[in-house]
Design a binder for these strands. Structure first.
Length: 488
RNA sequence: GGCGGCAUAGCCAAGUGGCUAAGGCAGCGGUCUGCAAAACCGUUAUUCUCCGGUUCAAAUCCGGAUGCCGCCUCCA
């Protein structure tokens, strides 16, 4: 047993102890229905695909949840020392976009621009790490056709009345992701057989014959089968395989689209290459509002803009969407958002106190505390991204640091190590603010004036100045060590 | 009807067989303060929806009940 002068923390956290081939991360895989060890395809780089959004309208925060989860996963893998290549395709070629563009009498690109722009702005507001690029379905039609040709050649797809369908009876184990079993003559409840011209109602669309009005407006692509538009499943499968290759590590999506969408992306990949396109299939649960799925059609959708108007910033929304486990539904309410806001404020206060700290003679437990929080944090995240456990570790650390910090016991280098640790944990969470708050000259003068009034015992005047500072957004507290302030 | 999932304090939430059931928010008590606020200290579930079973031992496993959510091949 070696004894390190600094408690070993710095030594143990170096790369010497990071064996990436032996990652202790466990991930729940929707295909196997169990948590298992994560084994990356390559030693240093993770390839990850997230089903992107449709952009026929402005996204709501329920849409954003799974992107934040993808971001959390990506950040945690990066925290573990992996490089992550993440691809998220933007679906700007779906039926609703086409219908919307038709009705608005504009071309498709114009129609989808707003949704796409607001979506990308949302990613920034919610502090998601940017990808290299965000491929759009509309720019990848040739690749889609090539993929369909391959499926037709291999006998997995057929043309009927100028549409091309995927024949699921040709693929053994179709349904292995969602467990949807196809029984003869017993289609699901919502199947209206009159709407179908496929060989079997269970087959899914790859390329759909364009309607007359779509043809008139020019919303179609020419192929050897006729004038068509692609299906969402084909778009997703094409983008993932183009940017990540035939086999990648992680496919992330929403629990509401396991079937049919992800099942069909999996089917296309397996049919085309003989292998599963992704090894790990993750699905984030939904955001619920008063017990029902948040969706535009139910009229309960809340957008980032709505929340911004009510005074909730991106970091606060991020914390709310991040705060509970991704495989559990998340109940939206303004009360819950208020909780998130208070919690983020508490974190901000802690950071500001660390930044403006009073140096002391040193606190011997510092390195042990740092070692513990990193262990607990990683232990929780390794367990299928247990954010609640990771946050508990963080808050436990903050509590342990709190007393010595309030007494001014930490040395400068200890304070710096604590700050670095919190920064490192936040490289995963992405909810904290490490910029020192600045005070304006006017506020500074008022504070000096108040201090004078207080020493003179003119309490009413001092209180009036405190109120004025509060109006300016500066919160004043009188502590044994003197007046302290922070921004509201 | 089929498939998948959920139920833990006032609210949110971790815990999937064994140490006092994490943590957050809110609340309450205290220290400090001219008053406040912040900070810090302390406190808040003999019990995990209900009933039965297995076990030396169950929030955790099994059976059943109740309530709730998502999906069921158009579209997303």
């Amino acid at each position: 047993m070696a004894i390190f002068p600094d408690g070993g923390e710095r030594y143990l956290s170096t790369d010497l102890f990071t064996d990436r081939t032996q990652s202790s991360l466990k991930i729940y895989n929707t295909i196997t229905k169990e948590k298992g060890a994560f084994k990356p395809l390559r030693p240093d780089e993770i390839l990850m695909h997230s089903c992107g959004p449709t952009v026929h309208e402005v996204p709501h925060i329920g849409n954003f949840r799974r992107f934040i989860v993808s971001d959390l996963i990506r950040r945690y893998l990066e925290y573990q020392g992996f490089r992550v290549k993440h691809v998220m395709n933007i679906i700007d070629l779906d039926d609703r976009s086409i219908r919307g563009a038709e009705q608005a009498d504009v071309d498709l690109a114009t129609y989808t621009e707003k949704g796409a722009t607001v979506f990308l702005e949302g990613l920034r507001a919610l502090n998601l790490r940017p990808d290299e690029e965000y491929p759009r379905a509309s720019g990848h039609f040739d690749e889609m056709v090539k993929l369909v040709e391959k499926l037709v050649q291999k006998g997995f797809a057929y043309e009927k009345l100028r549409s091309v369908y995927f024949d699921i009876s040709k693929l053994a184990d179709y349904g292995c992701l969602s467990n949807v079993v196809h029984q003869k003559g017993e289609p699901g409840r919502t199947v209206d057989l009159d709407d179908y011209e496929k060989d079997s109602p269970a087959d899914f669309t790859l390329l759909k014959r364009s309607t007359l009005s779509e043809l008139k407006k020019g919303f179609y692509f020419k192929t050897r089968w006729g004038n068509v538009r692609p299906s969402w499943h084909l778009e997703c499968a094409t983008a993932a395989m183009k940017y990540l290759g035939e086999t990648f590590d992680i496919h992330a999506s929403g629990a509401d689209v396991i079937f049919p969408h992800c099942e069909n992306v999996l089917a296309i990949g397996r049919a085309a290459t003989g292998n599963r396109p992704a090894n790990y299939w993750l699905h984030t649960e939904l955001v619920l509002v008063e017990g029902a799925k948040m969706s535009r059609s139910l009229g309960n959708a809340v957008t980032l803009e709505d929340l911004d108007k009510r005074g909730y910033r991106g970091r606060e929304v991020r914390f709310f969407l991040l705060g509970s486990h991704y495989r559990k539904p998340l109940h939206f309410s303004y009360g819950a958002l208020e909780t998130a806001k208070n919690t983020v404020r508490k974190l901000d206060g802690f950071i500001q106190r660390l930044i403006r700290f009073t140096p002391g003679n040193g606190y011997p437990d510092t390195d042990q505390m740092i070692y513990d929080v990193k262990q607990e944090f990683a232990g929780a995240m390794d367990d299928d991204f247990n954010v609640s456990g990771a946050l508990a570790a963080l808050f436990g650390f903050i509590r342990r640091v709190g007393l010595p910090l309030s007494r001014g016991q930490f040395s400068e280098s200890e304070r710096n190590r604590i700050l670095e640790t919190v920064q490192r944990l936040d490289s995963v969470l992405g909810v904290m603010n490490f910029e020192e708050e600045q005070l304006g000259e006017a506020a500074r003068l008022l504070m000096r004036e108040r201090e004078m009034r207080r020493t003179e015992g003119r309490w009413e005047e001092a209180d009036r100045i405190r109120d004025r500072l509060a109006e300016m957004g500066v919160e004043i507290s009188d502590t044994p060590g003197g007046m302290v302030w922070r921004l509201k």
